[in-house]
Simulated scan of single mutants.
Amino acid sequence: MSPSAASSTRASSNRQTGRKLIAQNKKARHDYEILDVYEAGIALQGTEVKSLRLGRASLVDGFATIDDGEVFLRGVHIPEYEQGSWTNHEPRRVRKLLLHRGEILRLIGKTKESGLTLVPLSLYFLDGKAKVEIALVRGKKRYDKRQDLARRDADREVQRALGRRNKGMG
């Protein structure tokens, strides 16, 4: 094996593979009706990536906007990297999302409809690259939320009853 081949195999073994979840927005799934989901890359600074690798981020107040044909992520909190110096990033800065032109055009058309918003669902590393899953959503009414809770409770009761029946208790 040549020295260059040995160094390339060593470098590739350090790379991360698979999906590593950093943050999730569980409240979004409760508050909104999800219509469509997109995966986008994020333009990040070096200290932001290091902070994300430590698993620190919050999507709670996050949303995405489309300005001049580009998609931006706003309100997402990535805390400053503690070992960073004067090069540290602003925790709630606006970050550009990397999407295909066709996806952006589709999103522009759909967000023109009334009541549709772009919300981040999860932030993760996929094969070493930071990705965000954004969803095109419509806000749920209060009664929709109640119906979802009632449906979930009913499903849970059915599962409990089946479990008791399978154990021979009921």
Rank of each mutant, 00 (worst) to 15 (best):
I78L: 13
I78S: 02
P79M: 11
P79D: 02
P79I: 10
P79E: 02
E80F: 00
Y81L: 09
Q83E: 14
Q83H: 15
G84V: 02
G84A: 15
S85N: 15
S85C: 15
S85E: 15
N88S: 07
H89V: 04
P91M: 09
P91A: 12
P91W: 05
R93V: 03
R93D: 12
R93H: 09
R93P: 04
V94H: 07
R95A: 03
R95H: 11
K96V: 12
L97E: 06
L99G: 00
H100N: 05
H100P: 01
R101K: 13
R101A: 04
R101I: 04
R101N: 05
G102D: 03
G102P: 01
G102L: 11
E103P: 06
E103N: 08
E103Q: 15
E103T: 08
E103I: 02
L105W: 07
R106W: 10
R106V: 07
R106Y: 12
G109E: 12
G109Q: 13
K110W: 08
T111D: 00
T111I: 14
K112L: 15
K112R: 15
E113P: 08
S114H: 13
G115D: 07
L116A: 03
L116T: 14
T117E: 13
T117K: 12
T117R: 09
L118Y: 03
L118H: 08
L118W: 08
V119D: 06
P120T: 03
P120I: 11
L121Y: 07
L121N: 00
S122V: 01
L123R: 04
L123F: 03
Y124G: 04
Y124F: 14
L126I: 03
D127C: 06
D127Q: 05
G128R: 05
K129Q: 14
K129Y: 14
K129C: 06
A130I: 10
A130N: 06
A130M: 10
K131W: 07
V132D: 04
E133C: 04
I134H: 05
I134L: 01
I134R: 01
A135W: 08
A135C: 11
